[in-house]
Design a protein around this nucleic acid. Structure first.
Length: 271
DNA sequence: CTTTACGCCTGACGGC
DNA sequence: TGCCGTCAGGCGTAAA
């Protein structure tokens, strides 16, 4: 499932083929995504040149002079480059034809993703305006996280998964980062000290960076811009390892539900 | 304000 | 073999 590293991997993969090139055709086979693909999208992008492409949280923003194309991969979505004329398969919902040969194909079996158009400043768009800082920037640091945690009764895992606090930390990497930081996921956010938040912030950045380096995590069907899987799943320390030996201390990995999400941790390594 | 529950959707998997 | 219930998950939204 795409988390921040997968989205980053996708953006890096497709960027060289998009920026500076013109969208020559749009094919929408299935507009019923999380929100319907607007019918006016074709008028906004066909015949227009892509000027830039960036990631914000887990959103992909493809910039045109007239506005931004917003794409979210949901939990089963992928974007991959192929060639115009390549036959489409089940759940290949949208094709963006680029120039005369290339094709960017949006595939999303579960249709939790979205393809939308943004007029004006993307930062003010309803889906983006309430987002917290990017986890890999200096705005996300121990002092900031400590301040955000005060008067919060919720578990620290919920805190770091709250997109208003920090974006891009999904369920997999939340468990992974808390393990690396030696913090139990169920600990109340307000009872964690600044030094521990320092370790947690570092662990989040390290985990995300390592996953980006590995090309993202592939648990089911994620593929990057080239249609290749990521390899970070081989490096997961606790996620989906309930009952297996901790890679550090050999004790059994525990599993419990926090915030309606499966959560994995080591009772020995995490206090 | 914070916190919680739900629903969207398909595919994988286990039990019978 | 097939059917059916359950789970998985990002995240916006409604409700508490």
């Amino acid at each position: 499932m795409p988390e921040l590293p997968e989205v980053e991997t996708t953006v890096r993969g497709i960027s060289p083929y998009l920026v500076g090139n013109t969208i020559t055709n749009l094919v929408v086979r299935e507009p019923r995504l999380r929100w319907p693909i607007p019918e006016s999208l074709v008028d906004h992008i066909v015949g227009r040149q892509v000027t830039n492409i960036i990631r914000r949280a887990k959103y992909i923003l493809i910039e045109f002079e007239s506005g931004h194309l917003l794409i979210h991969l949901g939990m089963s979505g992928s974007l991959r480059l192929t060639s115009i004329g390549e036959s489409s398969k089940f759940h290949d919902h949208v094709d963006f034809e680029i120039g005369t040969e290339r094709l960017l194909r949006f595939h999303d079996p579960r249709r939790f993703g979205c393809v939308l158009w943004i007029d004006g400043d993307p930062a003010e768009f309803r889906l983006l305006k309430n987002l917290g800082p990017e986890p890999l920037t200096d705005d996300f640091n121990a002092n900031y996280l400590y301040k955000m945690s005060r008067n919060r009764k919720t578990a620290v895992k919920n805190l770091i998964m709250d997109s208003r606090v920090v974006v891009g930390v999904g369920n997999i990497y939340a468990s992974e980062a808390l393990f690396r930081a030696g913090i139990r996921p169920g600990t109340r956010a307000s009872r964690i000290s600044t030094p521990k938040y320092h370790r947690l912030v570092s662990a989040i950045k390290d985990t995300l960076n390592a996953a980006i380096t590995s090309g993202g995590t592939t648990l089911r069907d994620f593929v990057n811009g080239y249609g290749m899987p990521g390899y970070f799943s081989q490096e997961l320390l606790v996620y989906e390892r309930a009952g297996k030996a901790c890679r550090v201390c050999q004790n059994s990995i525990s599993k419990r539900v926090i915030g309606q999400r499966s959560t994995y941790y080591c009772r020995t390594c995490q206090k």
